[in-house]
Nucleic acid binder design. Structure first.
Lengths: 340, 340
DNA sequence: CTGTTAGCGCGTTCAC
DNA sequence: GTGAACGCGCTAACAG
């Protein structure tokens, strides 16, 4: 090793192999044809002996390519996000990139903070599963020309590649299923719509399905994920006003489905019997909850994988106009919409 | 901006503020008292105008401190790991570190790969939630003196700080609870023990509790997480052999609890009625599954947070002998062990 | 208080 | 084929 306890550098290797740094560098970068067999041997040997590994820091500094991708996730405890992360991770591995994961905890401030941070680490691209972003930040990102793709939801007035679910199609499939099963009073339950296109699109499709069907009653409600009481209230109210007819709830995402199921449980309402229940996002425990919960499963892993592929395309210079890539969901029917 | 479309550098800022790089550097590092008010103003202005952000790459290269921490996670889809991650993430934020997350997908090869990778990014410390590591890798890590802590499980013959659950205490609490509830035939269900100390300790404590209690029957079984048939077989067999007496299953971790619940469901055995069920690790859906599943909740977030604190202590030069920090679990009683 | 200088570890001309 | 020398963006002496 070298005099200090520190890590071996390219110079140490060069010295040990009795050559210059240039040749070592070439060896590392695969320009093997240019080196004599003997020299190759010596370098290989020296590297092994010193347990040398090139510093990605210095390399990035010099070349301007860090092979780093930043991922900003709003809520790491959300299974949807984790599955997506898993897909992104796989794609990174396949393409030789390393992922810098940042969890914003649903705080807009953190989102800002991490955007800065990632940029200061010279990431080559960013994937965002956002809560919402302030406009200054967006301006900066655009002018910095950092390749970026959004997952799941768009950001208003921000031209950017988006990868996500075909919300209209999926919500239509879900709603039709409920109608086909004979439900006549339908409640669309969502977190506050805000400017979240995902929620809006799902709601719109839901409403569209029921248009011109005067035998149907459709309603919608927005509740905060954290407000258990309000949720209980909304569900109870809906149920009581439609005692006579088959009623069902369509929940806009997995996290809310969990809360809704808890609320129904507390109210003593059994899904599949007193009330229908269908939730967006597959849940690993869906079959274990009572008679099972019907879900609309998203191809989350593929969404993540595709997102990373898109960023890389941009990194490699693709200048095509902003694209939107949507995937189809899959309805998984269980007891909560079939048992009556 | 500067001539190229590239990012502003410290030199650009110095030029714009009509000063040298040093002063800018000082400004950035908070040595504000040393700068004249006027100069401070000019620098502040220039930074804002150029939207300058220091390159952490160059900074790390120079100082040898990257403020980067590597996290190696065996399975990112495991809720336990995610909660831990969440705690680590929070601690990183609080301490000004950035997290590099690597998911090994339970593959030992990937673990190797990422260890190399992290080291090449000059991370200052590593947190590992491992599957198992080859010895060469360990040797390298030790000689490289990279601070490292293990989460949840130890690695045989590898002296390293460990943070995790007090397995003996937790398993004792769980087993006693089952005994107190009147169960007389007890099955400890785990993934293959291998060299995983966590599983071994839990099993040992389970066995200890029943020692000298000749009115109890205790058994244990090891099944692969992916082998649904085998799991079903084991559970059915256990149940049938103990028809006459109250029987309960203690499952060693959350992922396996999910599979066990599915298997019982398929067998038509209702937990809480025909058979008792208690699982390590809290599950968000535990209360929704039938009569509810009793769990032993780990303080996962705190474990993650503490792990990061420990790495940082090492980074800052703490040379105390290898430590082991354990946390207490909490038994959350639900229907699966109380309904009979 | 401020500017000048010398590297950190590496990749890259450009000569030999 | 090979190596010397320069600079990426930044910080840390060392002068003024």
């Amino acid at each position: 090793m070298n005099r200090k306890g520190a890590r071996a550098t390219i110079s140490d290797v060069a010295k040990a192999a009795q050559t210059g740094k240039t040749s070592v560098s070439r060896y590392l970068n695969g320009e093997l044809q240019v080196l004599s067999a003997d020299l190759k041997q010596r370098i290989e040997h020296a590297i092994a002996a010193l347990d040398y590994r090139p510093s990605q820091m210095a390399r990035g500094l010099k070349r301007g390519r860090t092979r780093l991708i930043g991922l900003i996730i709003a809520d790491i405890t959300n299974p949807y996000s984790v599955d997506v992360l898993s897909g992104i991770e796989a794609a990174c591995r396949a393409q030789g990139f390393t992922l810098l994961v940042c969890n914003t905890n649903n705080e807009v401030d953190q989102e800002q903070h991490y955007l800065q941070l990632l940029s200061s680490y010279q990431v080559e691209g960013i994937v965002v599963n956002a809560v919402g972003m302030r406009e200054e930040a967006l301006g900066r990102l655009q002018q910095s020309l950092l390749p970026m793709v959004l997952i799941d939801r768009k950001i208003p007035d921000f031209a950017c590649d988006v990868i996500g679910l075909n919300n209209t199609e999926a919500a239509t499939v879900a709603t039709r299923h409920l109608i086909d099963q004979g439900y006549r009073a339908l409640l669309f339950l969502s977190e506050p719509l805000g400017l979240v296109n995902t929620r809006q699109e799902r709601l719109e499709a839901f409403v569209s399905c029921a248009r011109d069907r005067h035998d149907l009653i459709t309603e919608s409600a927005e509740v905060a994920l954290t407000d258990a009481d309000q949720l209980e209230q909304v569900l109870l109210d809906f149920y009581q006003r439609h005692r006579g007819e088959p009623a069902a709830v369509l929940v806009a995402n997995g996290a809310l489905t969990l809360q809704a199921a808890r609320a129904l449980r507390r109210l003593g309402l059994n899904w599949g019997e007193e009330i229908g229940l269908l939730g967006f996002d597959e849940l690993e425990w869906a079959e274990l909850a009572g008679v099972g919960i019907t879900t609309l499963k998203q191809p989350t892993w593929q969404i993540g994988y595709a997102a990373l592929e898109q960023v890389i395309r941009r990194i490699e210079g693709d200048n095509a106009p902003v694209s939107e890539q949507v995937f189809s969901g899959e309805l998984i029917v269980r007891g909560s919409t079939t048992t009556r």
